[in-house]
Amino acid sequence: MLKTGVVQVAAKGTDVAFVIDEEAPFDVVAGELREYLAKQNGLWSKGNITVNVGQRMLARDELTQVKSIIETHSGLKVTRFWCSPESLGTGDFQIEAKAATVESSANTSGAQRQPPAHNEIAVPESLPDLPADSISAVESVIQDLRSRQNKNGARSRNRTEALFIKSTFRSGESVHHPGDVVVLADVNPGAEIAADGDIVVLGSLKGWAHAGASGDTKAVIIALELPSTRFQIAKYEGISPTTARRKSKSSASGPKIAYVRSRSIHVAPFVGRFARYSKGVPYDG
């Protein structure tokens, strides 16, 4: 890995990534980048490059500048930008991102826009308010570099920050969060939690919970106690089993995990790992 102050160049096999310091002001970055490429002229003669801008919120013209700096000072071609979903939500890309996903998130119920799954956003090819040649060439797909590098192979789902609810979530209260939701107390009957990610309740889940609300069937619900009679993962609905045999099995106390297997919701004792799903009790009524 080469290092030149705020701009780091990481080469990994055939992949090359320019990682830019998130704290540094844009002018400094642009200067450093120009300087670095001038010095190394010839080394980067050819190839495709991905720019990871991390958490920073770059305006569209700034991205264009970065792209033009790289392309004019070397033989590289910028094909993709990576950035974190937070900057998608608040940065200038929001407009494009919204336009691109407005149909897929038609079921969005709240004021909060759901960042699309996988953080992959294709920047539309034509942007009327910008010089056509600067952007139209950028067939950039924005990805989250870190989700790709994650050695745990974590699902590259929505990476919006988790929402922490720190007091009892009571009847009549409801929340829809585009990420994971963690409740550090009980969820009482009559309360409603919908999360695009997982739901973890460090208490007793007696209210209604909907994990993977935007359709992610890999989402799970984990609770220290799961007496709830109704919950949902993606489009699958769990209804408490009514037959005595099943009831005695699944209502045994202890932490529980609910997940989707073969198109129905299963509930199993939670033993600290996601992997041990197989002994789950079918929980689809």
């Binding site: 007091s167 009571r170 009847s171 009549g172 009957p189 009559g190």
Partner: peptide, 12 residues
């Protein structure tokens, strides 16, 4: 109790 729970939430 259900109603009390709701009211506590509203009070808070």
């Amino acid at each position: 109790i259900r109603d009390a729970d709701r009211v506590i939430g509203l009070l808070e």
